[in-house]
């Protein structure tokens, strides 16, 4: 275990905020706070559906986008992230994530948080499956292929 990287306190605080966001979204908007579903809905008007939902979907996405900027302002320094791989590998990852999340009816937020909180059997199966697939992918890439 990487004791230096393990950050239980920010993880617990951030996790509670994510949980609260999910609860508020259900209480106010009556929906599962599943990011892949919300984002895919932004594309839906392209095929002539869900035009009336575009504004709140866009607002949700804008909130997600603005969050690290708000955090950077409060902290007084820019939050930094870096991509672990060259752009074309990130693109392959993105394609799998986008297609897989839609085919599987959800992602880490919709299944892994909201679905598990509802004790949905489908979400338990989905979460177990994507965790296992993620572990296998990292094992192959990092332990065998040396990325």
């Amino acid at each position: 275990m990487d004791v230096a990287a393990f950050s239980p306190v920010p993880a617990a605080i951030g996790g509670a905020m994510i949980g609260l966001a999910a609860v508020l979204f259900m209480a106010l908007n009556g929906r599962i706070a599943g990011v892949s579903g919300v984002v895919a809905g932004v594309l839906a008007p392209l095929r002539g559906e869900g035009r009336g939902d575009l504004a709140w979907r866009g607002a949700f996405v804008a909130g997600l986008f603005l969050a690290p900027l708000a955090a950077s302002l409060v902290r007084g320094e820019i939050v930094r992230v870096s991509a672990p791989h060259p752009w074309w590998m990130m693109a392959i990852g993105g394609l799998l994530v986008g297609y897989g999340a839609r085919l599987g009816s959800g992602c880490t937020s919709g299944h892994g948080i909201c679905g598990l909180a509802r004790l949905s059997k489908r979400s338990v199966a989905a979460t177990a499956t994507f965790m296992t697939a993620g572990i296998v992918a990292v094992f192959i890439l990092h332990r065998w292929m040396g990325f």
């Binding site: 994530v97 897989g100 599987g104 199966a125 499956t129 296998v136 990292v138």
Partner: peptide, 10 residues
């Protein structure tokens, strides 16, 4: 879908 998603996530 979840398996493909997890592979891309990893």
């Amino acid at each position: 879908g979840s398996a493909l998603f997890g592979a891309g996530w990893g």
